[in-house]
Amino acid sequence: MSQPRRALIAITSAHAPLYPEGKETGLFITEALHPFNVFQEAGFEVDLVSETGTYQPDWLSQQKEWLPDEDRKVWEDHSSEFRSKLDKLLKPSDIQADRYGLFFASAGHASLIDYPDAKGLQSIASQIYVDGGIVSAVCHGGAIFPGILDPSTGKSIIDGRKVTGFTTRGEEEEGVLATIQKWNRPTIEASAASSGATYVSPAGPWDAFTVTDGRIVTGANPASAHVTAEAAVKAFDGL
């Protein structure tokens, strides 16, 4: 059965103080925007969804070094397709999973907060996987995997798979590991291990890096959003 050439990008609906002066984490903009562009260029229809139908942008992701001018133009233009879909974000009850062949969890540290309990998003991703589609995540998006179950095994779809995601070393370098522990949330490395997956580290925390294992495609950090989406398209085209 051929998969629908439609991609669903999940967006975190959480936000919390993380940066100096209490500035907040939320959606890391380019981690959704770059995949959105890649999927569209590859001929996919693309929709955006969060667990509550709401989101807040991550403060760091709006700074010059993380949001190049070309991306900023799209982000600030409410009539751009990307921004207008963010402004009218869907929620899980709006989504028919069987209409999508690819699920992509974008991130931001905030996804560590809501993705582990995002039953609506998890159920959509699980359905897309069971139907033979691709499930992908970048950076902290992997926080969603422990709850995406394969009904035939009752285990996470990444059980026995190789995955990557944001490194614990990166959390230490950013000085945010203590905050994540205060949230009572595991790092991506820890949540991969708890799901029975083998975590594969990029050479450096900020290097573009992606891993494909069967129909699971993961990326390490914001710099990997583009290549991870490309790898997800390649996996999809190989179905």
Rank of each mutant, 00 (worst) to 15 (best):
I29T: 15
A118S: 15
P186W: 04
K23E: 15
G147N: 11
V46C: 06
R215I: 00
V138G: 12
E65W: 03
P116C: 10
G120A: 05
S106C: 10
T218S: 12
L121C: 04
G22F: 12
T218N: 06
T187F: 08
D150G: 08
S156Q: 13
T218V: 06
G108C: 12
A105I: 07
P35H: 09
E173V: 00
P222V: 02
K23F: 12
V176T: 13
Q63W: 06
A235P: 01
P222S: 02
V135F: 05
L239H: 06
R6F: 01
H15F: 14
G238M: 01
T198Q: 15
E21C: 03
S194C: 03
A235D: 06
D58P: 13
V176L: 10
Q181P: 02
Q3E: 07
G22I: 09
A10D: 09
K85S: 10
G238K: 06
P17A: 14
K23G: 06
E45H: 05
G238F: 00
A42I: 01
A125D: 08
T153W: 12
L102R: 02
H140K: 04
F39E: 01
I124F: 03
Q127L: 02
A178M: 11
G196C: 09
A10F: 14
A10M: 08
K88Y: 09
L67E: 12
P116Y: 08
Y19N: 03
E230Y: 00
M1G: 11
P222K: 02
G120N: 06
A178L: 10
A193S: 13
V74G: 13
G43Q: 08
G147K: 09
H226S: 04
S191M: 09
A125T: 07
Q63T: 15
G132E: 10
Q62I: 08
S123M: 00
F82K: 02
G238C: 02
A143T: 09
Q40C: 05
E65S: 11
T218P: 03
V217W: 08
R6L: 00
K64L: 12
A137G: 14
I29V: 15
H140D: 08
I188M: 12
E230I: 01
A143I: 05
K119V: 01
S111Q: 14
T187H: 08
